[in-house]
């Protein structure tokens, strides 16, 4: 079920800007008459260490795009983003900071 993900991480001054796209229906309670299907947890790792653990809700639209800024970072650092949805489906993508 997990469709493609795409991520970009670029060094910008003293920060790393990350933009990640994920394929997901993000179906709400109302749309599905009580059988919602949405990403619940989002985890961002920098070189294997968790830096963000996020919870998101049904309110986020289909095929979500997230962008965020991390303090520091260096070229070649590994960024991993993974999600877990309310049905237990999961997917992840990894990229090196450019």
């Amino acid at each position: 079920m997990a469709g493609p993900m795409k991520m970009r991480a670029t060094l910008n001054g003293g920060f790393t800007d990350v933009r990640v796209l994920m394929t997901h229906p993000m179906a709400t309670e109302q749309q599905t008459k009580g059988k919602p299907h949405f990403i619940q947890n989002l985890t961002v790792k920098l070189n294997g260490k968790i830096v963000i653990e996020g919870e998101i809700s049904q309110a986020v639209s289909r095929n979500p795009v997230f962008s965020f800024r991390l303090n520091g970072g260096a070229k070649g650092d590994k960024i991993e983003v993974s999600w877990l949805d309310n049905k237990g489906d999961t997917n992840k993508t990894e990229t090196a900071v450019a």
């Binding site: 963000i52 653990e53 996020g54 998101i56 997230f66």
Partner: peptide
């Protein structure tokens, strides 16, 4: 660090 985020 734990953050709650939304796209908007």
């Amino acid at each position: 660090m734990r953050t709650v985020i939304g796209s908007a």
